[in-house]
């Protein structure tokens, strides 16, 4: 039991275990830190609050790592939650640009930086 005045340890692994229903992992989801996530449906009543939060912050495209920062949850946990939403087709994932060397991407980055 949590006693009065005793801080609820939100960062504890046990809490995170509950949030994901005991699942863990980042690799199996195929998501990258910078995969962009966009909501396809608005949040619905009765959803797990963390799922609801993801749908809300992803009204505009947002990377996996930004979702993690805004929800204050580790990337590994966010990945599992995103896997649920992807399976239910509630969000869309836009994969990162392909691996290098891709001269067009390099040129686009140089051009973008020069215009800063």
């Amino acid at each position: 039991m949590t006693q009065v005045g005793e801080e609820w340890d939100e960062g504890g692994p046990e809490r995170l275990y509950v949030l994901t229903g005991g699942r863990s992992g980042f690799d199996e989801t195929g998501l990258d830190l910078v995969t962009l996530i966009v909501s396809r449906t608005p949040p619905q009543i009765g959803m797990q609050p963390e799922h609801e939060s993801i749908l809300r912050v992803c009204a505009s495209p947002l990377s996996v790592v930004e979702i993690s920062a805004h929800l204050k949850l580790p990337v590994s946990i966010v990945s599992v939650l995103l896997a649920d939403l992807l399976a239910e087709e509630r969000v869309e994932a836009r994969a990162p640009a392909p691996a290098l060397p891709d001269i067009d991407i390099i040129k686009a980055v140089i051009h973008g930086l020069q215009n800063l």
Partner: peptide, 19 residues
Amino acid sequence: AAGPRSEDALPASATSAVK
């Protein structure tokens, strides 16, 4: 849970990211 500020939102046309 605070999301991004509205002025920080990426355009809907953002299709891919690099790091």
